[in-house]
């Protein structure tokens, strides 16, 4: 009897302990939000939320803390990464799930897993030593190699594994009957892929891309190393509108990492405000991925 009650006691204790640890993640998220918000409040109060979001000048020494240039920088570099990375990632996903023979899958998939594991500082180093000098060869006045193009290429490689592996999973999860049905009706394999499998896997693929977006927005160290870090609204540097990608820029993440150790007072607070904007942006992006997945599941 005593042993029995001790057993029940243990069961109850463990249930509580486990519940507490399960709620720890939420607690951490709340703590992060509270601390970042608390750090950001003085800046928001003193400078105004809208003034910060719409301000294009960031000169802490002068008391100017506009972060629009950084929002644009993060947005553009992410856009560039998606432009380069998504076709490659989706192609690889279809290749892995539908086309590649087993032994090739055994080469390609670990390669992509390895790409996911390579530290971002190594990508940054590679970008500095290999990509920046290459991009510098593009003839345009003021092109120094550091800028959105180098950063977008680095970022495209970094989000490739996320998008490829989730999309592959989504395509594989399409019930086998879809494939067989389509092939039985006389469709070619390509018609099956393009008209049946990809549409059926679309929610999964879209959420893979959106999750890739979230990762891209959050990347820090590799961006600092190749993007040039200038606080300017990126603009085309020649007549060709595409040359906007040769422009230097700064990301929201880079703004925090580069300046946090120097900052005091309102400046420090403005960096926390940058963190809040980044946090909110990424939460929006990630929750839209969850939303799309749920809608697809229905």
């Amino acid at each position: 009897m005593t042993s029995g009650s001790r057993r029940t006691g243990l069961e109850k204790t463990m249930k509580t302990v486990l519940l507490v640890s399960a709620l720890a993640s939420l607690l951490i998220v709340l703590l992060i939000f509270i601390f970042t918000m608390k750090g950001a409040l003085p800046a928001f109060r003193e400078l105004g939320v809208w003034e910060m979001l719409s301000g294009t000048t960031w000169r802490p020494g002068n008391g100017e803390f506009g972060i629009l240039a950084m929002i644009a920088g993060s947005g553009l570099v992410t856009f560039g990464a998606v432009l380069i990375g998504v076709p490659l990632a989706l192609g690889t996903a279809v290749f892995l799930s539908e086309i590649a023979p087993g032994w090739i899958v055994k080469i390609v998939r670990p390669s992509i897993e390895l790409l996911a594991g390579i530290p971002s500082v190594v990508y940054g180093l590679f970008g500095m030593v290999v990509l920046v000098p290459l991009v510098r060869e593009i003839p345009a006045p003021g092109n120094a190699g550091f800028g959105l193009l180098s950063a977008s290429i680095v970022l495209a490689v970094m989000v490739l594994p996320t998008i490829a592996s989730i999309s592959e999973f989504a395509i594989r999860s399409v019930p086998g009957g879809y494939r067989e049905g389509s092939l039985a009706l006389g469709a070619t394999k390509w018609e099956t892929v393009s008209r049946v499998l990809i549409p059926a896997a679309r929610p999964g693929i879209i959420s893979a891309v959106v999750l890739g977006l979230g990762r891209a927005l959050g990347e820090t160290i590799a961006m600092i190393m190749v993007i040039g870090n200038s606080v300017i609204l990126p603009a085309a540097i020649t007549g060709n509108p595409l040359s906007i990608f040769l422009s230097r820029a700064r990301t929201l993440t880079g703004n925090i990492a580069v300046e946090i150790s120097y900052a005091t007072g309102v400046h420090e607070s403005a960096l926390f405000a940058t963190g809040v904007v980044l946090f909110v942006l990424i939460m929006l992006v990630n929750s839209s991925a969850g939303f799309l997945l749920k809608r697809g599941a229905r």
Binding site: A144, G145, S230, I232
Partner: peptide
């Protein structure tokens, strides 16, 4: 504002040497 900004002396030196 158009200046390339680098977060360290070493990175400045590399930038000047190569750009």
């Amino acid at each position: 504002e158009m200046a390339i900004l680098q977060p360290s002396n070493g990175a400045i030196r590399t930038t000047v040497a190569t750009t």
